[in-house]
Design a protein around this nucleic acid. Structure first.
Lengths: 337, 337
DNA sequence: CTGAAAGCGCTAACAT
DNA sequence: ATGTTAGCGCTTTCAG
């Protein structure tokens, strides 16, 4: 087990100073082309690998970005991470993963225990019940850039990357209406999250545009899970005048809805239309297959990371918002037959 | 933007030396109880957070563990990571994520560019086509602990954590047989991966135990994707004497199999039984629902990380192997009716 | 039990 | 264009 090689080794071998080596290893700036080549050659020769801790200590900049999100065990988030990882990797950044399990306490504890010296920036998607964003505000105040994606808080002024929730929802509902459904219900996410509000607004706007009545009982706010979808749908179908279509805030809830519809012997599509949001692979596996709004998850990851890297590089942190379009995917669950 | 506080600040405030502060902050060893309390109080007071880069540089030990795996966008891997993250988090370790996209070149490039100074240990699941493990052997030779999980190479002597692939496969096939299926095919993963071999062996063993003939054409090695499952099944059902049951190496392939069976109008369960491996949530969503062997993904993550942390702590690296049991989940796809 | 001092590997003025 | 030197924040001998 040989001690890793350092720039000192290179300096000694080449009989030059460490600062020259250091300079040669980074940009060409102010160093003789030939010296530089010799350094590079020697480095390769002895299999030199920079010690990032030393660099970080000296430059006050690690090459890490922290990612904080509720879960990674679903299609959307794992795809976002893959996108993040893709650009981080290409720029030589590591990503440090923190999963909150959607627990506000855990989120708080993670953020408070973050050593600000161990990452250059933060990418976050909040818990569904984050009542406060004070902890993130603190991080920002320390001048470390934070960009939010998907689940972004509305009380805080930072960079945000989202899908076009309003228009996605609008399109989904309009699709339902143009396929002949009239009593469209919405099983929403938890209140307080920007995107559940946006999707709700898109739903309302589509209803209004097509002169459909807005029935208060037709909107139910609850969790994001399949079980919530089932529960909400039971509630909906027990109404004196049940809806003939359901727009779910995401595919998991839509699938939950389909499950209870099936259990009650209601024919999906023919009797009750269902549309989701995400385009989880499950949507094409379930039968009947589920119409949905495909989210640009991978792109959200890429864009968030690019934005963050930009903030880190320029050391300026002027908030920017990016909204990426979704895409309507028509399948069987919205086919009246 | 105030510079983060350091142990120097604490030392200055308390008018003691930095070394005392340093000692007090770690273990009680050799420091007066009272001094220690004063240090802790002061640290909390000024909101001191250790600079891990400095620690890492001084101690030659970061608090990071690297995780290298093919994908994160599926149920199994994302659940494993959640398990890893769970124990890493509780021990104050960060996890640095690297995804290879199942590309051996990328895997190689990641490993070769790893700065050994930036993590204390490695958790890896290899690419399906990793022909060589030389790059991992190099890491191990540098005395940094590596533990493999799930996709473990068989040519290399290190710690490994796996599900019980042999017995899982055995149980799956035995379940098929005891439900009356006789011509059981196996759509396997790529050759060369330990677990695809183990599952194949389990399949063989069950056949042998029940005196069923081993038909060579009934085993097809290919990829892990749903598409591979579809293609393999086409090939199988085009045989002069097609199988009446399919044991798939994982649920994604099983789902692919079900899709082509459905497309051909073959009744799943009644005519051809299908069983998978993993217990992806999709297995209970698809209809008919898919019987499968549930893998202890979360536990695999936990155990791998615990093992690795053990190696890191004791600085000894005596390879250990852990095998975790799976569980048969009976659903509709293996019901002959 | 505590302090002084050296050093981890690298960067960044400041000289030359 | 290159070398000298002083840190970055923390740990760790070695003295006392």
């Amino acid at each position: 087990m040989s001690r890793p090689t350092t720039i000192k080794d290179i300096a000694r071998i080449l009989k030059i100073s460490v600062s020259t080596v250091s300079r040669a290893l980074r940009d060409a700036y102010d160093v003789n082309e030939e010296t530089r080549n010799r350094v590079l050659a020697a480095a390769a020769e002895i299999n030199y690998k920079p010690n990032y801790n030393a660099t970080a200590l000296a430059k006050r900049s690690t090459h890490n970005i922290g990612v904080i999100l509720p879960f990674i065990t679903n299609y959307y988030f794992s795809t976002v991470i893959t996108g993040i990882q893709e650009v981080a990797y290409s720029k030589g950044f590591n990503i440090i993963l923190h999963v909150t399990n959607d627990s506000p306490e855990r989120e708080l504890s993670i953020v408070d225990n973050l050593s600000l010296s161990s990452f250059d920036g933060l990418l976050v998607s909040t818990c569904s019940q984050s009542d406060s964003c004070e902890h993130f505000a603190r991080v920002i105040r320390e001048d470390i850039p934070v960009v939010f994606f998907d689940r972004v808080p509305n009380q805080i002024r930072t960079s945000k990357v989202m899908q076009d929730d309003f228009n996605g929802a609008f399109e989904a509902v309009e699709h339902l209406v143009s396929n002949g459904y009239r009593r469209v219900a919405h099983i929403a996410g938890p209140r307080g999250l920007l995107f559940t509000e946006k999707r709700y607004e898109g739903y309302l706007a589509a209803l209004t545009k097509h002169n459909l009545p807005v029935v208060e009982d037709y909107t139910i706010y609850s969790g994001f899970s399949q079980e919530s979808g089932q529960a909400d749908t039971i509630q909906l179908m027990d109404l004196p005048e049940p809806p003939d279509a359901i727009f779910a805030v995401n595919d998991r809830k839509a699938i939950g809805a389909m499950l209870t519809l099936k259990a009650r012997g209601i024919r999906i599509g023919k009797e009750v239309g269902v549309i989701g949001f995400t385009d989880d692979p499950m949507a094409s596996i379930i039968s009947p297959s589920l119409s949905t709004i495909a989210e640009p998850a991978f792109e959200i990851g890429r864009k968030s990371c690019e934005l963050l890297l930009g903030h880190i590089r320029k050391k300026s942190f002027i908030p920017e918002e990016k909204i990426l379009p979704g895409k309507l995917i028509v399948r069987e669950s919205t086919n009246k037959g």
